[in-house]
């Protein structure tokens, strides 16, 4: 599993964190991040399972590949790379951290 992490090239890069719920668990992230970034930053192992059951995470990060689809606020099949986080957002992934 790839080991992703946030970097901080300049001091105080990010604003104050907010919380979203990932499979019901409180997860910190930052306003301006996409749901994909929040999930990768939290170490999610898989965003979705393919039709034959293999784990998938984002590939293109620009809305083309549809590998980053997750359930957001009850709506299925949302592209997490194209959706910005907001406080209290409920995200459901196949395999959490």
């Amino acid at each position: 599993m790839p080991d992703s992490r946030r970097i901080e090239p300049v001091a105080d890069l990010r604003p104050a964190p907010i919380q979203i719920l990932v499979n019901g668990h409180k997860t910190f992230c930052y306003p301006g991040e996409t749901v994909a970034t929040a999930l990768l930053g939290a170490g999610a192992r898989g965003f979705r399972r393919s039709v034959t059951g293999t784990l998938r995470i984002p590939v293109c990060n620009m809305g083309v590949c549809y590998e980053c689809m997750v359930k957001i606020n009850g709506l299925e099949a949302q592209r997490s790379c194209m959706t910005l986080v907001s406080p209290g957002m409920c995200v459901e992934v196949t395999d959490e951290a």
Partner: peptide, 21 residues
Amino acid sequence: PGVMTAGGIQTLLKSQFLCSA
């Protein structure tokens, strides 16, 4: 998981400051 397009890794890095691996 972990195979990404060069553009995908780059946009995560430069617009989200996240290293995918």
